[in-house]
């Protein structure tokens, strides 16, 4: 089972992630965060006890944006897999430069998102796919 941390300031989007992620049965929505700062703190807290396989990171959020949070998480854990999600195409380059493994444009399409999550997780080289 893969653990996912979803970060977005919109509760509706987090609810959607929960619905999509739980639909597959292969992944667990380990936790959610409503801003970059909270995401960094939660990632840090999980680092020693439970592996976060994937972070789905929004960009425009209060307190700390997605770019900053991506850099901070990667500074903590170079192996972190962060999938960047934004409606703003102009941040794509910056997100990939910051170390995100992927960029997905909002609005998200469920099938595309699921396929995309699988691609990112499969690219980790982990053969324990259920």
């Amino acid at each position: 089972m893969y653990n996912i941390l979803a970060v977005d300031d919109e509760p509706d989007i987090l609810f959607l992630y929960k619905t999509i992620i739980n639909l597959r049965g292969k992944y667990t929505l380990l936790d959610t965060a409503s801003n970059g700062e909270e995401a960094v703190q939660k990632y840090k807290a999980y680092l020693s006890r439970k592996k976060v396989d994937l972070v789905i990171m929004d960009h425009r959020m209060p307190v700390m944006d997605g770019l900053k949070a991506t850099r901070k998480i990667l500074a903590m854990d170079r192996e972190a897999k962060i999938k960047f999600v934004s409606a703003d195409l102009r941040v794509k380059k910056a997100a990939l430069e910051a170390g995100a493994v992927d960029f997905v444009e909002k609005p998200l399409l469920v099938k595309a998102l699921i396929r995309n999550i699988e691609e990112v997780l499969n690219s980790t080289g982990d053969n324990n796919m259920p």
């Binding site: 609810f15 959607l16 619905t19 909002k106 998102l113």
Partner: peptide, 8 residues
């Protein structure tokens, strides 16, 4: 964002 939720 709203469309993402509705469509999703």
């Amino acid at each position: 964002n709203a469309n993402t939720v509705v469509m999703g």
